[in-house]
Lab assay of single mutants.
Amino acid sequence: MRVFPVYAPKLIVKHARIFLTGVIWVKDLGRLEFEKGRFLLPRKSLPKVKQAILELNELIEAQN
């Protein structure tokens, strides 16, 4: 598990694309899981977490 002390979308996306499957922890967002290079949306999450995951997945799609 990698810990990101700040929310840096480009760096987080780079990590997810390299490792494809895993878990990261982002300060103020908490634990985020990714599989096959995409972030998974938890069943229950705060609106800011949901927005961050959608933003990260959009960045991943834009890079493909």
Rank of each mutant, 00 (worst) to 15 (best):
R43A: 08
R31Q: 12
E33H: 14
K36Q: 12
H15W: 05
E33C: 07
L59G: 04
K10H: 14
H15E: 04
L40F: 06
P47S: 10
V6D: 06
Q51C: 08
A8H: 15
K50D: 09
L56R: 01
L46A: 14
T21C: 07
K36L: 11
Q51F: 07
Q51M: 12
E61K: 11
E55P: 00
K14G: 12
L32V: 06
E61Y: 12
N64S: 07
V49K: 11
I60M: 14
V6K: 08
G30K: 02
L32F: 14
R17E: 14
A62F: 12
L54H: 13
V49T: 06
D28H: 14
G37P: 00
F4V: 02
K27I: 15
V26L: 03
F39C: 01
E58N: 10
E35H: 11
L56F: 03
E55H: 13
R43I: 08
I60A: 06
W25R: 05
P42W: 04
V26M: 01
E33D: 13
I60C: 05
F39Q: 00
V49D: 01
L29E: 00
I24S: 01
G30M: 03
F4R: 00
L59F: 07
P9T: 04
K10L: 12
L11W: 07
R43C: 06
K10D: 12
E33S: 15
L29V: 12
G22C: 05
E61D: 13
D28A: 12
M1Q: 15
E61S: 11
N57T: 03
R2Y: 15
K48T: 07
E61N: 10
F39T: 02
I24T: 02
E33P: 07
A8S: 12
E61L: 10
L20W: 06
L40D: 04
V13N: 02
A52N: 03
I60G: 04
H15C: 04
L54Y: 11
V6Y: 13
P9Y: 02
N57K: 01
L20D: 14
P9Q: 04
Y7E: 02
P42F: 05
L46T: 13
K50R: 11
K10E: 13
P9S: 04
L46W: 14
Q51D: 08
Q51G: 11
V6N: 07
L40T: 09
L46I: 12
G37F: 04
I24A: 05
L11I: 08
S45W: 09
L56S: 00
H15A: 04
D28P: 12
N57C: 02
S45L: 12
I60F: 08
S45T: 12
K48P: 07
P42V: 04
L41H: 14
R17I: 11
M1T: 15
V13T: 09
R2D: 14
R38M: 11
Y7I: 02
Y7S: 02
K10M: 09
L54T: 11
L59R: 05
K44C: 07
A16T: 12
D28V: 05
F34R: 00
H15L: 04
L11E: 14
Q51P: 04
K44P: 08
L56N: 02
L54Q: 07
W25T: 05
D28N: 15
R31F: 10
I60P: 02
Y7M: 03
K27W: 14
K44V: 07
A8P: 01
F4D: 01
L11C: 09
F19W: 13
K14W: 07
L56M: 08
P5Q: 15
N64E: 14
F39I: 03
L29G: 00
G22Q: 02
I53H: 02
I18G: 07
A16Q: 02
V26S: 02
E35W: 08
A52I: 09
V3M: 03
L40H: 07
M1A: 13
F4L: 02
L29C: 04
F39V: 02
K10I: 11
E33L: 10
V23T: 12
P9A: 05
F4C: 03
